[in-house]
Amino acid sequence: MPSFVVHRNGQAASAAELAPLAFAGYAHFTAMQVRGSRIRGLDLHLDRLRSASMELFGRALPDDRVRTFLREALRVGPADLSLTATVYPSEGEFTAAGADVEPELLVRTGPAADGPQGPLALAVVEHERVLPAVKHVGEVAKTYFLRQAVGQGFDDAAFVDRRGRFSEGTIWNLAFWDGTAVVWPEAEILIGTTMAVVRRQLDRLGVPQRVQEVRPPDLPRLAGAVVMNSWTPGVPVHRIGSVPMPAAPSFHEVLHRAWHAEPRTAP
């Protein structure tokens, strides 16, 4: 039977240590798929944890400590798994404690996942996340709008901001295709690690890409759409709101090619 773990600062976490975190919301995290005990975009995950910690707590765990904690979690599990690393303040929520207390790291592992096959239909919802550049926990709106979308016959939701620009999905980044280039929506968003890996590998492969504002009236002029996250570099989207999106197998192929061009590294 595969062994999965919940570690606090590199050691098995007790129920007493986990209890205060059950409904805590002042924390941030990164999620990754581990294959063969190696991770794509490890540098991006470390950057995310470091920058978000500085934003929320005013200090960050050193990268070498984070890598040590990740290695310990991987050491006792299967070679292929899902891993979530969450950074939270030791002093808890609802306190004005300063940057003199080092944050804690909770690492959880579980079965490997690849995400849905699609194609997906996305409802269009106006919503803007607080601190959009931080992958923080406790975002009730994401699950709420997902459930609302499913209740309306969709598979998930895509967000537009107050200016009517597409930004991201509930747990996804959005990407579009104009027939020759990848189009990333211009808005206040979380740059996902998969998105960042794909972008740098598209550059290396010489595939055109650009960032521009995309609004619902622009959709009929586009040649494809996908969502992506730590599970996958691209799940096809066949409808956004009432607008059908064309199948774009060449788009999906180039995203997956870019993703697989990124080498996996060990923590």
Rank of each mutant, 00 (worst) to 15 (best):
109 T>I: 04
62 P>G: 01
264 R>K: 05
205 L>M: 11
103 P>Y: 10
250 S>L: 01
3 S>I: 11
129 R>D: 14
53 S>R: 00
82 S>P: 01
187 A>I: 07
131 L>P: 06
166 F>H: 10
254 V>R: 12
118 G>S: 04
101 V>F: 02
213 E>C: 09
9 N>M: 07
110 G>P: 03
24 A>R: 10
54 M>C: 03
45 H>N: 07
233 P>T: 01
215 R>W: 12
64 D>K: 05
35 R>P: 04
119 P>H: 05
42 L>W: 05
146 L>Y: 11
167 S>F: 03
248 A>G: 09
224 G>K: 02
107 V>M: 01
221 R>N: 13
141 A>V: 13
14 S>I: 07
240 I>N: 04
265 T>C: 14
267 P>W: 10
91 E>M: 00
221 R>W: 07
67 R>E: 09
49 L>N: 10
70 L>M: 15
94 F>N: 15
266 A>F: 06
28 H>D: 04
264 R>V: 06
12 A>P: 15
23 F>S: 09
15 A>C: 07
184 W>F: 13
205 L>F: 09
204 R>H: 12
26 Y>T: 07
36 G>Y: 12
97 A>Y: 10
182 V>E: 10
118 G>I: 02
191 I>R: 12
60 A>S: 13
114 D>E: 15
170 T>P: 06
36 G>K: 14
262 E>Y: 01
84 T>I: 15
54 M>G: 00
207 V>Y: 03
240 I>G: 11
121 A>T: 10
171 I>N: 07
116 P>H: 07
94 F>Q: 14
216 P>L: 11
71 R>M: 13
59 R>G: 12
102 E>K: 02
43 D>V: 06
133 A>F: 05
52 A>T: 14
266 A>Q: 12
145 F>Q: 10
32 M>Y: 12
221 R>E: 14
183 V>E: 13
191 I>N: 08
227 V>P: 05
106 L>Y: 06
222 L>E: 13
211 V>R: 10
95 T>S: 13
85 A>P: 07
81 L>C: 15
124 V>I: 15
48 R>M: 03
230 S>L: 03
129 R>Y: 01
27 A>R: 08
259 W>F: 15
136 H>E: 01
46 L>A: 06
167 S>A: 15
123 A>M: 04
201 Q>F: 09
76 V>L: 08
44 L>A: 10
174 L>S: 06
132 P>V: 10
174 L>V: 09
